[in-house]
Structures are given as C-alpha cells and as structure tokens.
Deep mutational scan, measured.
Amino acid sequence: KKKREHFRQLLDETSAITLTSTWKEVKKIIKEDPRCIKFSSSDRKKQREFEEYIRD
C-alpha cells in the first residue's frame, strides 16, 4: 500500500501531468524516479494506477 501512496505522490508532484496526459507521455517523465521503479516492475500495473489516478 505504501508503494502505491508513493507512486501517487510522484504523480501529484509531476506538474507535466494533466487530465489529458497519456501514460506513454507520463512514463517517459517518471520512469527514472525511484518511486516509479519501486512501485512495480509491471508496466501494466503502473498504467492502471495512473489511469485510476487521472479518474480520481
């Protein structure tokens, strides 16, 4: 659960993310961040979390 919170925090702090951002764009920006790396090695899982984040 904590990894998820850190991942969401990373998304919060990434000012380039807007409601129209695509995962492909965002992934390029955040892929080097340790919170992104630690969250999951599964790209699909990160994408799902990102899409949920955008909906919230």
Score class of each variant (00 low, 15 high):
residue 9 Q to W: 00
residue 23 W to I: 07
residue 20 T to V: 04
residue 10 L to N: 05
residue 56 D to S: 15
residue 22 T to I: 00
residue 36 C to K: 00
residue 45 K to P: 08
residue 3 K to W: 01
residue 4 R to W: 14
residue 7 F to E: 07
residue 32 E to H: 12
residue 17 I to L: 08
residue 9 Q to S: 08
residue 28 K to T: 08
residue 40 S to H: 09
residue 50 F to Y: 14
residue 6 H to E: 15
residue 32 E to I: 02
residue 17 I to W: 01
residue 11 L to A: 02
residue 28 K to F: 06
residue 56 D to K: 15
residue 9 Q to T: 09
residue 4 R to T: 07
residue 23 W to L: 00
residue 15 S to T: 13
residue 52 E to K: 14
residue 18 T to Q: 11
residue 27 K to Q: 05
residue 38 K to W: 09
residue 14 T to M: 09
residue 44 R to V: 13
residue 49 E to F: 10
residue 7 F to L: 03
residue 13 E to R: 00
residue 38 K to Y: 12
residue 55 R to T: 08
residue 29 I to V: 12
residue 42 S to V: 14
residue 56 D to H: 11
residue 37 I to S: 08
residue 28 K to R: 02
residue 25 E to M: 02
residue 35 R to N: 11
residue 17 I to M: 04
residue 10 L to H: 04
residue 13 E to G: 00
residue 48 R to K: 14
residue 30 I to A: 01
residue 17 I to T: 05
residue 54 I to H: 10
residue 24 K to H: 14
residue 48 R to E: 15
residue 56 D to C: 08
residue 11 L to F: 00
residue 56 D to A: 11
residue 39 F to E: 07
residue 43 D to F: 04
residue 46 K to R: 14
residue 34 P to Q: 05
residue 50 F to D: 13
residue 28 K to L: 13
residue 41 S to K: 15
residue 21 S to C: 04
residue 2 K to V: 07
residue 13 E to D: 06
residue 23 W to G: 08
residue 39 F to P: 02
residue 13 E to L: 07
residue 6 H to T: 11
residue 48 R to G: 11
residue 35 R to D: 05
residue 34 P to I: 12
residue 53 Y to G: 10
residue 34 P to L: 08
residue 24 K to F: 08
residue 6 H to R: 10
residue 55 R to H: 06
residue 18 T to D: 12
residue 13 E to I: 01
residue 20 T to R: 08
residue 49 E to N: 03
residue 41 S to N: 10
residue 40 S to N: 07
residue 10 L to K: 06
residue 15 S to Q: 12
residue 7 F to D: 07
residue 19 L to A: 14
residue 14 T to E: 03
residue 3 K to Y: 14
residue 7 F to C: 02
residue 11 L to R: 00
residue 3 K to M: 02
residue 37 I to C: 06
residue 1 K to T: 00
residue 21 S to Q: 03
residue 55 R to L: 09
residue 14 T to V: 12
residue 20 T to E: 10
residue 15 S to Y: 12
residue 29 I to G: 05
residue 29 I to D: 11
residue 47 Q to C: 08
residue 56 D to T: 15
residue 16 A to P: 06
residue 20 T to Q: 07
residue 50 F to R: 02
residue 53 Y to V: 06
residue 8 R to W: 12
residue 52 E to F: 06
residue 45 K to M: 15
residue 20 T to K: 10
residue 7 F to I: 06
residue 33 D to W: 13
residue 36 C to V: 04
residue 51 E to W: 01
residue 11 L to V: 03
residue 11 L to K: 01
residue 30 I to K: 03
residue 43 D to N: 01
residue 52 E to D: 15
residue 48 R to V: 13
residue 45 K to V: 15
residue 42 S to G: 07
